[in-house]
Structure formats: structure tokens, C-alpha cells
Amino acid sequence: MTVASNVKQCLASLKGIESQLSSLALNSLDQSAKEAFHDSMLTIGKIKKDLQYRVLELERLEPQYRG
């Protein structure tokens, strides 16, 4: 396992979390729960962006792990 693949794995699980939060926000009936899930989804989206940027950086540094 390399650093790049670890970060990619984390990125993938963040994507999963984001989609689950989205579905919970849509399925919940309580307004405050809906808001909490939706806000969290947006925050996760920001973290995801940071990680995506880092993945690109890593790929540039270690081109053999591109993919």
C-alpha cells in the first residue's frame, strides 16, 4: 500500500459517506435532522475536494501510481 492509494481509499469512503448523508437528508421527516444531514453532506463535499486536490498532487509526485 502506498500513500497515494491510501488517500484514494479514504476519498472513496468519503464519497460513500456523502451519498449516504444525501439519502438520509431526503428520507428523514424531521426538519432539524434533514438540515443536519444536508449541512454535513456539504461539509464532506469540501473535505472531499481538498483530498481530490491532494490525490492529483501525489500522482504528480509519484507518476507510477497514477490510475
Binding site: 479514504c10 469512503s13 468519503l14 460513500g16 459517506i17 449516504q20 448523508l21 438520509l24 473535505i47
Partner: peptide
């Protein structure tokens, strides 16, 4: 399960 994966992602970071 979602809680568990949130915790795991946090630990990874």
C-alpha cells in the same frame, strides 16, 4: 454503519 465510516475517515485523516 455511517457513524462507523465517519469515524474511520476521521482517523484516516
Amino acid at each position: 454503519l455511517l457513524m462507523a465510516s465517519l469515524k474511520k475517515a476521521q482517523a484516516d485523516l
